[in-house]
Amino acid sequence: MSNTARERIFAKLRPAVAAGQFDIPSPELPPRPEWTPSEKVQKLKTLMEAVRSEVHVVKADAWTDALKALARQRGFKTLLHGPGTQVGDAVKQAWSEGSGGLPALRTYEGAIENYKDTLFHDTDVGITSTLGGIAESGALILWPDAEEPRLMSLIPPIHIAVLDADKIYATFSEAMERMSWSEKMPTNALLISGPSKTADIEMTLAFGVHGPKELIVFILEP
């Protein structure tokens, strides 16, 4: 049935687009902002904080110390990380150097079908790397993969994301162009700007409706 539906639809569409002229303007995009690296960090931080993300700008060689201090202070119980990624390996290394008072490290065991219970009911925090950031939008770019699956940044009530300051692009368009997205789109690409939120009840903003209640970002500066 759907084959013939397809034929019928195209049989209508082809003459339809041929009827009359389209008047397609060719406007230029607004100019791309030219920001210095530190301006981009600042812009991203300001925008993300405005939608209640928690942003820490730290030195690249000291970020795991900052993470450990934060984890102890907040009393996290379990931390899901992705070994095999730079971020995951750094966490593992840091924890091996002394993990008193720190959350237990977890890894995403097997496929979701067998890991759902733990992920939904027994994971406090997920930590992931990012592919970059977008200063103009105040958003992080994530390309989840086998090491850092898609649900790591969605199911745990707290998501921690790690971003290299030098991977912050001015605009979404720039990020796409520089990384040639059109040639290699992944299974799933995400932009994330803050914790999950809704204003569906009387326009009152509330956080953590389905996804993470908190988004904590470490921006690593050289």
Binding site: A189, L190, L191, S193, K197
Partner: peptide, 8 residues
């Protein structure tokens, strides 16, 4: 400026 998630 952007929503919380843009899912591709």
């Amino acid at each position: 400026i952007i929503t919380t998630y843009f899912n591709m």
